[in-house]
Design a protein around this nucleic acid. Structure first.
Lengths: 73, 73
DNA sequence: AGCAAAACCACAACATATTGTGATATGGAT
DNA sequence: ATCCATATCACAATATGTTGTGGTTTTGCT
């Protein structure tokens, strides 16, 4: 789970909910530029920024033990 | 999942692995002060900082749909 | 109580995220 | 091809995270 993956998830979820970037940035109360950068995986957002966006989209963050990654075995 | 919860998880995991804050901060390559703040839930780390610490501890971040929280129903 | 390790705090310097403005590029529909 | 909403980009100003240093407090153990 890196910044790019997170951006993809956010963008996908936003589209699924049928809202544009401007609306999401308003609802979440974060700057449009910030949201754009995060969705593109080019950002390194602060935890609060990320959590706010996820929450607005009905998503949550979880922390778990690393799982086996068969790709790299 | 807020900053405080994340800090608790990190601290618990670090203790479970038997390493002190100095060692973890060295292994992860982040400043000691930064780690301390995060563990205490007083920090608002950048995504890269958080991911590095989690990775060092053998933890990973996941994003999921919000689950029903019976506590608040 | 006394000791040593671990954890925490305060400060200043530096690095970087966030924001608004305004402009440009891209996409889909007719 | 044209139009319009959406998405992306560039820039400067501001806010905030990160770091090292040095000191203080707390914890765990005997």
């Amino acid at each position: 789970m890196d910044a790019k993956e997170i951006g993809t998830i956010i963008k996908k979820r936003r589209k699924h909910l049928g809202v544009n970037q401007q609306t999401l940035s308003d609802l979440a109360g974060i700057g449009l530029n910030t949201l754009v950068a995060i969705e593109r995986g080019e950002g390194n957002p602060q935890l609060s920024t990320l959590l706010t966006i996820l929450d607005t989209l009905g998503l949550q963050m979880d922390i778990n033990l690393k799982t086996l990654d068969y790709e790299t075995m």
